[in-house]
Write a protein that binds this DNA or RNA. Structure first.
Length: 483
RNA sequence: GACCCCAUCGUCUAGUCCGGUCCAGGACGUCACCCUUUCAAGGUGAAAACACGGGUUCGAAUCCCGUUGGGGUCGCCA
């Protein structure tokens, strides 16, 4: 754990001189790593890797009673699961409160900040009357030029920034372009609370500066904050980093992704059976593109990613497209990994640890299963036709298929198969088709009941493949169970 | 409400900066057909968009203005 790394306090060379890009992801540990945060982290990470720079992680746990250890762990877990690694030690904002205060005091001394004795109650009424009068609900600068000797007794003052009252603050955003804010829109924000603790506005600026952040890539919802933060940088005579406000992700209904609907943690996506590379690819394409490319490896993403290609408008989250991407990654994922992923799911579902024979079948049948699965959950579900030991459970529709006639046909087939020894897919196909011909039956009349009896279902991989994967003993055994 | 941001198929987007090659391209989804013992996968094809209104220009998805719509921010939260 770190704690005020000295290096951060050493004055940094001017921006032009340190050509290395430094980005950061600065989540608040109040809940899990939600999908929007994941994308912000991804973009920061990608940009740092693309430029050969650094990607830092800062936990903004400036207490507030809401930060929890669980949330911190969940965020770190989420990042790790997504394959997003950070450079150096994690910076905990709460451990830097002294430095934040130090900066505020420096501003006080330089005259760029001042004490204000307005209580929250006074401020509250100030806002209310302003609103009632049709004015903006802002701090009116009561104590900006008032003599501190007039300070009321028994009130601890806050420290406010002496912000410029005229002119405008301009942000040259790498994504949004030039954003101009009239300084009259910005009031003198609080830097230090009455209890001496720093506010978010001060903390971010000080931390970003001390950490040498060159590019602040974050959600659009911070765009308005950028102007205010720029004022703090300027008051301290610091270089203002490059801002890049990326659009927010909206739910399928177009509304903001809120706690209420759809704002899930990345762990939820993992539990729904999505592969981290699919999530990464999907998130990457939400608001960013590289021509017509859709399937983009992480290596390519790092090579191609640039801020200039990030869109300005918000994008809606679409599970259908995520499913498609996930399916594509499942198709090419390494077999051992997939097997490892589904084993615990099958076990949890059936309460049985797959037997050695079952695992063998699973490995043999995996390729026929993956093209039929959009998620790991589906894969595990589909895999049960191989993992289950006899006797099988039958789906309603499969059971219906096994009427007396069908059972009779299967019994005949079983007898015919008993002497068959070449248990390869091709040979079995020839054998079963041959058998159907001698019985003068359409293949479907045999194949469908066969599928039902062998898998307990009406949909499965090719039936001859299933037979081959099952092996002779298991195939005949399952046949015997029902025929 | 004020301020700020945004606006191409249902969705993600290419094209917009440096107007003409765009009666707008790709992907997902949808539909049809092919393949096929089932379900997928795969293949082929189809329907599907420049929000609206004004300009500027020989010419605008591309530039300007307005309207509408959507979003964000207005805390001694982060």
């Amino acid at each position: 754990m770190l704690h005020t790394r000295r290096t951060f306090l050493v004055p940094l060379p001017p921006r032009q001189a340190r050509m290395t890009v430094v980005t950061r992801f600065a989540p608040t540990p109040t809940r899990f790593l939600h999908i929007g945060g994941a994308r912000t982290a991804l973009f920061n990470w990608l940009y740092a890797r693309h430029t050969g720079g650094q990607f830092l992680l800062r936990i903004e746990d400036t207490d507030r009673k809401r930060s929890t250890e669980e949330a911190k762990a969940a965020i770190i877990d989420g990042l790790e699961w997504l394959g997003i690694d950070w450079d150096g030690d994690i910076v905990y904002q709460s451990e830097r409160a002294d430095r934040h205060a130090e900066v505020a005091h420096a501003m006080l001394e330089a005259g760029n900040a001042y004490h204000c004795w307005c209580t929250p109650e006074v401020l509250q009424t100030m806002r209310e009357t302003a609103k009632a009068d049709g004015r903006q609900p802002r701090y009116d600068g009561t104590w900006r030029d008032r003599d501190p000797s007039e300070a009321p007794d028994g009130v601890d003052p806050v420290v406010r920034l002496r912000a410029p009252r005229e002119g405008e603050t301009v942000i040259d955003d790498a994504v949004q372009g030039k954003v101009v804010t009239a300084n009259t829109q910005l009031d003198d924000m609080i830097l230090l609370r009455a209890d001496g603790t720093p506010t978010y506005m001060l903390s971010v600026v000080v931390d970003d500066h001390d950490m040498g952040i060159t590019h602040i890539i974050r959600g659009d919802d911070h765009l308005t904050n950028a102007a205010r933060q720029a004022q703090i940088y300027r008051a301290m005579g610091w270089d203002v980093p490059t801002f890049a406000h990326i659009p927010l992700i909206h739910g399928a209904d177009g509304a903001k992704l809120s706690k209420r609907h759809g704002a899930l943690g990345v762990d939820a996506y993992r539990d729904m059976g999505y592969l981290p590379e699919a999530i990464r690819n999907y998130l990457l394409r939400l608001g960013w593109s590289h021509g017509d490319d859709e399937i983009i490896s992480t290596e390519q993403a790092i090579e191609w990613f640039d801020l200039g290609d990030v869109n300005k408008g918000a994008a809606r989250f679409d599970f259908a497209k995520l499913d498609n991407l996930n399916a594509q990654y499942i198709k090419t994922a390494e077999a051992g990994r997939l097997l490892g992923l589904i084993a615990p799911l099958i076990e949890a579902d059936t309460g049985v640890t797959p037997s050695a024979a079952a695992r063998k079948r699973l490995a043999a049948g995996l390729d026929g299963l993956r093209s039929r699965s959009k998620t790991i959950l589906e894969l595990a579900e589909n895999a049960k036709i191989y993992s289950s030991d006899r006797p099988l459970e039958f789906e309603e529709k499969a059971a219906v298929l096994l009427d007396p006639d069908a059972r009779g046909r299967l019994a005949a087939l079983r007898t015919a198969l008993e002497d068959h020894d070449d248990w390869t897919e091709e040979a079995l196909e020839t054998a079963v088709k041959g058998h159907a011909e001698t019985q003068d039956l359409k293949l479907g009349l045999i194949a469908q009941p066969l599928r039902a009896v062998l898998t307990g279902r009406t949909a499965s991989p090719g039936i001859f493949e299933v037979m081959a994967v099952l092996g002779k003993d298991e195939t005949l055994g399952r046949l015997a169970d029902a025929a």
